[in-house]
Amino acid sequence: MALINEDEALIAAALNGSAFAWEKLVKRYESRVYNQGLRLMGNPADAMDLCQEVFLGVYRNLHRFRGDAKFSSWLFRIAHNKSVDLNRRKRLMMVQAKPWSQEEDDGLDMYPAATGFEPDEKLDQSQANTQVMTMLAQLPMDQRLIVELKIYQSLTFEEIADMQDISTNTAKTRFYTALKKLKVVSEKDHVLP
């Protein structure tokens, strides 16, 4: 008999009503989802929202999960879709809230709340992370997602293309465009006094 992997054991126990198993399952992945949220959404509050929505989605569909896909791939596919969705909602909300500022469409590609972190939130955020978030804030969501999937989730371009229903070439080009754009950004950062 093959070894049952821990995820599957936890899923089975959770489906049997074990809150302990459910919490353990969440604990295994919450950090990766939360950090993805930070990078994609640009602030702790939205990252936490993403985290909650992703695990709610996982919970609601757990009984449908079958072992033929890896649980982590399934979860991160949900996380990917939820990020896109949450980002779209935040943007819609901004547009609806301020119908008179539509000319500033540059700002619409930015993080909804990238402008200000609360001081205490900034404290437990390393300088490296602040720099990464500032860099990613310059990218439109489609490029930000490719960077996320390629650099932080180490997917191949083929896997990314598959997940986003684009061609492998588009994925590659988008990644290159993003790096190039960030290159310019970080060069600008260095020029600043």
């Binding site: 950090s31 939360y34 950090n35 930070l38 990078r39 437990d124 955020q125 390393s126 490296a128 992370n129 720099q131 990464v132 860099m135 990613l136 960077v147 650099i151 932080y152 960030l182 970080s186």
Partner: peptide
């Protein structure tokens, strides 16, 4: 510099 990201709690 992107890879310098440190996992946040």
């Amino acid at each position: 510099s992107l890879e310098a990201w440190q996992e946040q709690r």
